[in-house]
Design a protein around this nucleic acid. Sequence first.
DNA 1: GCAAGGACGTA
DNA 2: GTACGTCCTTGCA
Length: 973
Amino acid sequence: MHLLLVDGSAYIFRAFHALPQLNRKSDGLPVGCVQGFCNMLYKLTEDLKGEDAPTHMAVIFDHAGKTFRDDFFPDYKAQRPPAPAELVPQFPLTRAATRAFSIPSIEMAGWEADDIIATYACMARRAGGKATIVSSDKDMMQLIEPDGSIRMLDTIPRPGQPPLRWIGMDEVFTKFGVTPDKVIEVQALCGDSVDNVPGVPGIGVKTAAELINQYGTVENLLAHADEIRQNARREKLKANADLALVSKRLVTLSQDVPVELELDALVRQPMEPGNLFPFLKAMEFNTITKRLAGLLDANPDDFPADPELSAKTAPGAVGFDNAARAESRAARHEASGRSNAATVAHAAAEHARVRAIPFRPEDYEIIRDAAALQRWIDAIEMTGYVATDTETTGLDNQTADLVGISFSIAPGSGAYLPLGHSDGEADIFGGGGLVEGQMEIRTALDMLKPLFADPSILKIFHNGKYDLGMLARYEVPVASIDDTLLLSYALDGPQFNTMGELGEHWLGFAGQSIRELLGSGKSQRTFAQVPLAEGARYAAEDADMTMRLWQVLKPRLAAENMTALYETIERPLAPVLARMEARGVNVDRAILSRLSGEFAQRAAAFEAEAYELAGQSFNLGSPKQLGEILFDKMGLEGGSKTKTGAWATGADVLEDLALKGVPLARTIVDWRQLNKLRGTYTDALPAYINARTGRVHTTYSQHSVLTGRLSSNDPNLQNIPVRTEDGRKIRSAFVAAPGKILISADYSQIELRVLAHIADIQALKDAFEEGLDIHAMTASEMFGVPVAGMPSDIRRRAKAINFGIIYGISAFGLANQLGIGRGEAGDYIKTYFERFPGIKDYMEEQRRRVKEDGHVTTIFGRRINFPNAKSHNPSERAFVERASINAPIQGSAADIIRRAMIRMEPELARAGIDADMLLQVHDELIFEVPLGTENEAIPVIKRVMEGAAEPAVRLTVPIQVDAHAAGNWDEAH
DNA sequence: GCAAGGACGTA
DNA sequence: GTACGTCCTTGCA
């Protein structure tokens, strides 16, 4: 007999990290792991033929709740984060899949899958047969028998490797340095940080193997502990003898679980089309359905999809993105065994646990050679995740050089791999040679490459976008990331920006500041000039801190229902942005230089004119001096003061004065405009052209904006002028590369459409449905003027009101904007509310929510916090009210374009279109495509952008995107 | 050398 | 009336 035992729970967890989580049913339910699981079952039957073909088979799952190990070691697996929300609904489905394949599905309260597997494997062996354990879990390696009667098979999908990989004596020896029968002894000594098996502190796999190979067992080792020559090792062992013994009990698999099914009950059954196809069809697994139909010679059409599981008919079938927001329900599901209250408690417990772990910089390691690096790589692979951070010579990852990389695999662990520390005095050539004792950079990176590229190993960064861009320049691609900065942003908004702030708040320890390390001003040094030991301490602490923050923040996702936002929006967006930043945009230096001269000349003329009109020369750039001249010296009326008591000289004030016949005011306005364009754009932008790429690379901030928008800096490419003719000249300097053309695609009236959807305003929705001019329609409704032949001034007012609504209108603000009285503005608002009563309801609802909850949300569940909502300052409170009205609108629109950006690249690739997404300007995306391909690219771009809310949210208004192609940004817009 | 304030570019 | 980032001056260290 040959018994095949599949470790079902381990498979889904490992597959979750190994597989791209893209596969969803038409209702949005994630089924990637279920699909991988079905493929594996299929492959097992296909590939295990001849003497490997099993005669008996079962799939074993972990059961929710405590096991016997918790009885004597309550901390066992205590630091496991709760299962990701995307995984939770897949647990019951994998059991259903097992039954669909006519295979017994076994789980038992109080026992881990590993113990049940061990029990059955031994039963098979005692019965004179053999057993194959389908698992890659190292804890199972203790069961392997040298005579081949118990073997292991790894089926976790890994790119570039065969689907089935045998694990034998050699693999075990590579991992543990001992034969399988001694694996538990080694594990007892070295422990396991993932499962929280303590082991003997300070003893790793290598040392453990050495000791066990000499003494055989933990007990014998402890009995002869006095013989050990190395002082530290001996004392550690003697001091922690009890930990070693407890650890051994923890890792030893039970072989006498009182299983209910005898071996005979596990005899392989033929697949039953009536079980199989209803399940596969409900899951929408078309490929495997076809394959199995061929194999079984059956027609799947004869079997309807299982109505209980099917997308269309299942009760309460909703898109996952919707469903995940109510994931407290899903989280209550079996496997995790935790109710929502439990996920909250778990997050709190994790926070307390991590916060209590002291920082010990003296434990950090410096990796100086390949052997040490390999040890860390091995440890990381064993752990399955790593917090990591790159140290570089600057803040801009397109120009900085890599100086080192740090790692941490658990709170308190840390290592620094220095690669580019230089000695000698820093000079303009970047200092002297490399400091001794560093690995050659290419050698080290080549060793790390498979680790970073391995999607089954989670890389945890803080602001990973930076590191991704950095590593990409060194040809180190990264798959599977988590990001503590984005976790914090999804949970708390832009409240905490730096690791220091997060550390201070969550761990009570800010860590060493980079400013202190590098100095400032004239004496500032780059990380390359930091002495190696000092740099190592800082860098390793950074990775350690990142690991701790991850363990604190990640469990909060489930507890606070932010998993879907983080998993479907924030996490996948970061690599997209990293690529956009790396691409940059082509800017014509000659155009800017010519404009700079032109603007300077014209500004100089205005400057002379201003001195003439003022009767004196002064600094036109100084609002203070200008205010004194206008209101003190010239004695003009109507001046107002800013909050600091200075004369207000803003454009609106000067515009007023100009209308009242003060020519100096107009001159200043014109001068300021030209000077602004020159200073901020034509002079500043050329300095941003990257010497290596010849292009301008902005940096996006994914975590800075309250509402969920991106921001752009160094340089800000989201405020390139467009409103004035001179401004557009600057825009025209953004040109396509030779042989390419730019496409600008922008959402039309996205915020008003979102408002119509959220507030459910039928009149607005109808107008959008019919493709009307929305401002003209508003004007017509409000003022009773027909749309045809509408005076432009009436439309302008309606437009201002529409924008005002989005901004949380006030009579004061609208009056200012339109230059009318407060009373009249108030009347407009009143009329608007009468014509569109739902708007008022919406506004009151947001005001109520922000007061009650301290936050409002977007349609995708993004939470926007307003800690000031209960302020005693009335104007502060009024501000919060306006912002809380605006935030769901601006934020939902921001979420929509974020979703479009995430989907854009794969959809373009799928359509076979070569297009580079370069820039995002809130409601606009800029692409660069080969000249002549724009007409194929545009429909795909439009389709992705227009459908970006689906399927998570079904908008009740049409979304419209306008796209144009041209050689420069001005003409494409 | 740095922070704050004013002004102004964008959606 | 919302949300940003940058440039420049000013005032203090």
